[in-house]
Amino acid sequence: MTVSAQSQPSELHQTRRRQPGVLRRLLKNLSGTAGLLLVIFYVGVGVMGVMGATPFPPNEQHARDRLQPPSAVYIMGTDLFGRDLASRVIAGAAHSLRVAVTSVTLAGLAGTLLGVTAGFAGGWVDSLLMRLMDVFFAFPALLLALVIVTILGPGTENAIIAIAIVYTPIFARVARAPVLAVKQMEFVMAARCIGGSSIRVLFRHVMPNTLAPLIVQISLALSWSLLTEAGLSFLGLGAIPPMSSWGVMLNEHRALAENAPWLILYPGAAIALAVLGFNLLGDGLRDVLDPRLRGRK
């Protein structure tokens, strides 16, 4: 699956020149715009959660108002503990944002570093690193995450580590392919010939070319990490209660859904919208950044 890289080196280089117009082009793209708006909305809500701008403290229990349907006071209703669901959904946005961004950043950094190193160094370093990635890649994602969290124990930090490890090999692959392609290209050869150091060549010429596929990958990885976190929480391996996490909320209240559907509806919709946002944004970015698609709608 590294094949596609071989057919696109010349176009990749062009990407760099056109970088400045990305946002403008993205806004012309329907799904890109919708995705961007959703993501901005999600991040906004997340920031509200981080700052504690919620109608009630998310963990405050109102014993008398247990399992209230949505009302003027509790706009999304209350849960088993009489906690305000709206506040918890907002706090959950902050939590999921933290998990998604941290894990994807970790995976992106580690993966890119490994991939670029492997691609640039070549030879046995390349073989060793990529075989190692293959070993991790040989496990289905959720299964690998499950094993890691079982070792580390449940909790937000451990979930982040697990998700990061799971997605590192993907980033390594995505980052390595263009490096291999770019390495063969004239301008890199030229830069080397005129005595540019390897490191310099790497940062000045190689890295920028891997950006386009990485950006697309990042937006998709953010959406996966949200779903993975939800999956782990479903298995009781995610955030530790009373921390509000959408996944934990779904898991905690799955059995109550029949009589109190709002308990599933709102956290479910929150996950769906956030994932949708990253997917649409990823689609849009792909359209905009992938030169082969450019010029068509």
Binding site: N59, Q61, F81, P154, G236, P241, P242, E252, A255
Partner: peptide
């Protein structure tokens, strides 16, 4: 214990508060 009994985490949260 995780889900053993199914009410354990809820009890813990109520006592915690």
């Amino acid at each position: 214990a995780n889900a053993e009994p199914p009410t354990a985490l809820s009890e813990a949260q109520s006592i915690q508060a």
